[in-house]
Amino acid sequence: MELDELKYQLNKKLDADQPKSASELSVLLKKAATSVVQKLQRSLRFDLLANILVLLVFIWEALFNKLWSLRIYFATFIFLSVIALIVLIYLIRKIKKLNNTVLPVKQNLEQIYKIISFYKVICFRLTMLLIPVCFTYAFMLGYIEGKNGTSVDYSILLQKAGSKIWIGIALLLSFLVLLGAGVYYFTKWFLNRLYGKYLSQLRSLIEELNAQ
């Protein structure tokens, strides 16, 4: 029994579902898409909106905060938010372009793979970048301002600590290392949980198409 002998029967069987009416089709057009790419697009749009709102807060704080260390701190976040904004706009445009064009299956798979991989990598890098910015950089700024006597005086804290200062530094460093490792593994795990399986399925489909 060959495939060619059963072409007609198979075609008829595949065609056996009840057709939908024009009004049923019209209702379908009002519903929301559920594909991974569409969900990603919705999530990126939400991120974009949140990013713009947060950016406005950062601008306000960078201009009007009483402490100069916090003004520099928030100015740094403006820079990071602008990078995130550019990346988000780039990805949304890419997905929009992908939605509007009907590519051959292989190219379509490659495009989706590229977009999601890029998003995964950029999310990971930006999250990792936040660790030194939030802790080391913030600590340094606070320390410098404290020394200048404007608000937080870390030198008093250091004097009180005396010889136990090394224990304090060791504890602080351990905290930073543990936090860094925690954020590193959690981000990796979380992004893999969200997109890892889908990416590996896409990769195997592309490999299958490339194979002779």
Binding site: D17, K20, L25, L28, L29, K31, A33, T34, S35, N99, N100, T101, V102
Partner: peptide, 20 residues
């Protein structure tokens, strides 16, 4: 699942229809 896929294909086709 067939219904879900039917809906997804219909939506995707509608989104890309402007470029047909």
């Amino acid at each position: 699942d067939k219904e879900d896929l039917f809906q997804e294909v219909t939506l995707q086709a509608w989104k890309s229809f402007a470029t047909f």
